[in-house]
Design a protein around this nucleic acid. Structure first.
Length: 299
DNA sequence: AAGCCTTTCAACCGCCCCGTC
DNA sequence: GGACGGGGCGGTTGAAAGGCT
């Protein structure tokens, strides 16, 4: 027995929304707020599927939407987040106020993909595209600068036909992702074949800077846990080894993303008052201060 | 001007997760 | 513990707009 359809398809409109339908939806949500999407169309007098109403509201009618072109900063943030999260458009959208997952997804497919290809980067893997012989077509050089608080590595990627691209990576940011089977969304099965396949694609060749030495744990690239052994074990290792330190506090990557003490994290640090919170660790601009994972999803 | 091709993006579809009973 | 319903997500589609010949 299949599940019941979300709406009576025979009596619903499809396709582009009319101004009148938009007005009805807006005025209904203004009056009653977002609620049960299934019953909303009937209550609002719309011949639309509830899901269609939700989509229309979220992607187009919401008052806090930022319309217009993406800025260069937004472009780069999307690229960076995509390299870490993959096609998790809702999570990426959560870091771009006023943008929707659908909008970012479309923008990725129409603009950023091409932009990366022009740079000689495979948009799926974020790795340099190899030539027909399998050789990478670029040169990567790195320089490292150290300040008392943070070690910053500058990676310059040179292409034969394009201008150099320079990325600035804070020490161990990439390492955090490499070693941690981090799953910001519980839909990502850490141990699933799909995810295990995807993790190596997280720009891993850009692992830069000396490995982190903490608590006699993993200290060199060669001692990373083999991928097939990663999962909870890997995660716990990462809690110790993958995080950055600041003032002696060890910062769990997962905590830094605001997911501590969830199923993804069993470390003892707390956002609400101990090490993580006090450090102000800024991962991709994700200041952990008051960062709630739920807020990433925004919707 | 007309026809064809390409690009863009709003909207749909099907699946999955989670909460409730 | 299992069934069910609602909501959310990512992938895909197709109409409209723009560009090119």
């Amino acid at each position: 027995m299949g599940r019941s359809p979300c709406c009576e398809k025979a009596h619903t409109n499809k396709g582009a929304w009319t101004k009148e339908e938009d007005d009805r939806l807006i005025s209904y949500i203004r009056a009653h707020g977002e609620g049960c999407w299934r019953s909303l169309p009937k209550a609002a007098g719309l011949l639309r599927c509830g899901k269609s109403c939700r989509l229309r509201w979220i992607n187009y009618l919401r008052p806090d939407l930022k319309r217009g072109n993406f800025s260069e900063e937004e472009d780069e943030l999307i690229i960076k987040l995509h390299s870490l999260l993959g096609n998790k458009w809702s999570l990426i959208a959560g870091r771009l106020p006023g943008r929707t997952d659908n909008e970012i997804k479309n923008y990725w497919n129409t603009h950023i993909r091409r932009k990366l290809l022009n740079r000689g980067i495979d948009p799926a893997t974020h790795r340099p595209i190899a030539d027909s012989d399998g050789h990478q077509i670029n040169n990567i050089t790195t320089t490292t600068t150290a300040s008392p608080d943070v070690t910053t590595t500058t990676t310059t990627i040179s292409f034969a036909k394009t201008t150099p691209i320079t990325t600035h990576l804070v020490k161990n940011e990439v390492e955090d992702v490499k070693t941690c089977n981090y799953s910001p969304d519980r839909k990502i099965k850490n141990s699933s074949p799909e995810n295990q396949k995807r993790c190596p694609d997280l720009n891993l060749e850009l692992r830069i800077g000396p490995p982190h030495h903490q608590n006699n744990a993993i200290s060199s690239p060669s001692s990373y846990i083999p991928q097939h052994q990663q999962s909870v074990v890997c995660h716990r290792q990462t809690l110790v080894t993958g995080g950055r330190t600041s003032g002696g506090a060890i910062i769990c990557f997962t905590c830094s993303m605001g997911i501590q003490n969830s199923k993804e994290c069993s470390c003892t640090t707390s956002l609400s008052g101990t090490s993580c919170n006090s450090t102000g660790y800024d991962f991709l601009g994700l200041k952990n201060v008051a960062l709630d994972y739920r807020s990433l999803q925004m919707k």
